[in-house]
Amino acid sequence: MKTIDSKIVKHVAHLARLELDDKELKEYSGQLASILSYISKLNEIDTANVVPTSHALTTLKNVFRKDVPRKSLGPDEALANAPSKEDDFFRVPQILEGK
């Protein structure tokens, strides 16, 4: 397995929408490298013909409900925790470039 350095950690942080200062970057790079080195133990096992388990219950099937209308949260309840709102909408900073 590949190892991890601060350049990769920086890239991964960006993918996860996190910002790390230099001290954090150094600390996480070291810790993640040692965790990944421990994890590389998994390479000892031959899994060539093994079916992956995504869920512990092998009987699990996709579930669909009937397409009938039912009561859900109203706008007031749905927006009750919004950090910022306007009318019946969540308000967010500018998304598109320009004015």
Partner: peptide, 17 residues
């Protein structure tokens, strides 16, 4: 990295089960 880590782990999960 997906195959090397996540998929590999899911396969070992099968062995543990």
């Amino acid at each position: 990295y997906y195959d090397a880590y996540y998929l590999k782990a899911q396969k070992v999960r099968t062995k543990i089960r």
